[in-house]
């Protein structure tokens, strides 16, 4: 093969073929999609065999090298469990209270979409892709564009679907961008960064704060919203009369984008003046939803950890640390919410 073709011709052929394939794939090609699916199916048994061969070696190695670390980590985790038990009871009561208030005010819950539980079966083998593979696919109703969450918040979206597996693009990938909103109370001090705090799945901290702070014994004066007004963007505080000063939740909408593995997310505001007013370190960020949104409104994403004012610009550099620990994902949930095709295309 090589003797019949000169070196330059082989190299030129390789480069031209690559460019042709990239162009074809970028425009979407069903043959390429089928070929991808076929390679994925062929690789599954080989992966299983490789795992079976390498797992005992890996475990033995880990047993030798990580024993002391594991023992220390175990102690720390036991301590954390004790603390979290207390937090769990508190958050459960807050969730119940939240639901009670939603019912009372005839507001729809933000989470009306069913989910499919999945297990992470593979990580991206490349240094330039933040993806992972999960063990549910089109047979379980998963489709391209669906958001994926774990117990702490949003972790990404589905980019490729096979019959029994799917590929998830993580929120830290530079290709990932989603409309997000910042929830803050205007006079909230919020200058400290909570460490290791996670929000209960589906309930943004901002809402819990506003809900609990506006709970009032004077429920007789509560005015339910007009029929059909189920917009979850209406702060609960607006519909209740409180004897104490209510914490009105301020929402600022922007575009959240990944910056690569191990890096915080970058938030750019639609209204550049917004970042200078109410956005503070410690504020909660969740999905903004909307007709062209990639995810329904209210999925927690993370917490603002840095707000840097830029000289010569009205906008600020806002960094968001995701709630979810993307390095240690095991079980995740695919929200069966199909964004419209325009949103997926973006």
């Amino acid at each position: 093969m090589f003797s019949s073709l000169s070196r330059r011709r082989v190299i030129l052929l390789v480069v031209l073929t690559c460019m042709l394939l990239i162009t074809l794939d970028k425009h979407g090609n069903p043959v390429i999609d089928r070929a991808r699916s076929l390679v994925d199916r062929v690789l599954q048994p080989i992966d299983t065999a490789t795992k079976a061969i390498t797992l005992p070696v890996e475990r033995a190695w880990n047993g030798v090298t990580n024993y002391d670390d594991l023992e220390r980590q175990n102690e720390v985790l036991r301590d954390q469990i004790e603390h979290m038990r207390g937090n769990d009871v508190e958050s459960r009561s807050a969730v119940l209270e939240y639901r009670e208030l939603l019912k009372l005010n005839q507001l729809a819950s933000k989470f009306r979409y069913p989910t499919v539980a999945a297990q992470v079966v593979g990580d991206s083998p490349s240094n330039f892709q933040n993806t992972l593979q999960i063990n549910v696919g089109s047979q379980q109703g998963v489709a391209v564009g669906m958001p994926v969450t774990d117990g702490a918040g949003l972790i990404g979206r589905i980019t490729k679907v096979y019959p029994t597996q799917s590929l998830v693009l993580l929120i830290t990938d530079p290709e990932y961008a989603i409309a997000a909103q910042v929830l803050t109370a205007p006079d909230e001090p919020g200058t400290t960064v909570p460490t290791g705090s996670t929000t209960p799945s589906g309930i943004p901290v901002g809402d819990l704060t506003s809900t609990t702070s506006t709970t009032s014994p004077t429920t007789s004066s509560t005015q339910p919203p007009a029929t059909g007004d189920t917009g979850s963007s209406t702060p609960v505080g607006d519909t209740t009369t409180s004897t104490s000063s209510p914490l009105e939740v301020v929402r600022e909408t922007g575009m959240l984008q990944g910056q690569g593995a191990d890096k915080p997310l970058l938030l750019r505001f639609v209204d550049t003046s917004a970042s200078g007013t109410s956005v503070r370190v410690g504020a909660v960020v969740d999905t903004a939803g909307g007709n062209n949104g990639l995810a329904p409104q209210g999925i927690p994403i993370g917490i603002i950890t840095k707000v840097e004012r830029q000289t010569g610009s009205s906008s600020a550099l806002v960094e968001v640390t995701p709630n979810a620990s993307l390095k240690r994902l095991n079980f995740v949930a695919v929200v069966l919410y199909v964004p419209n095709t325009d949103a997926i295309g973006r």
């Binding site: 090589f2 390789v14 480069v15 073929t17 394939l21 991808r36 994925d40 693009l169």
Partner: peptide
Amino acid sequence: GGSDRGAVAGFVLGLLYDFSGNTPLGLMAL
């Protein structure tokens, strides 16, 4: 095996990499 064989090996193995991942087909091959 030389640069021509290296280019072909890179092309084929890169294509397999592209097929199994999320990269545009031909990118890793190139």
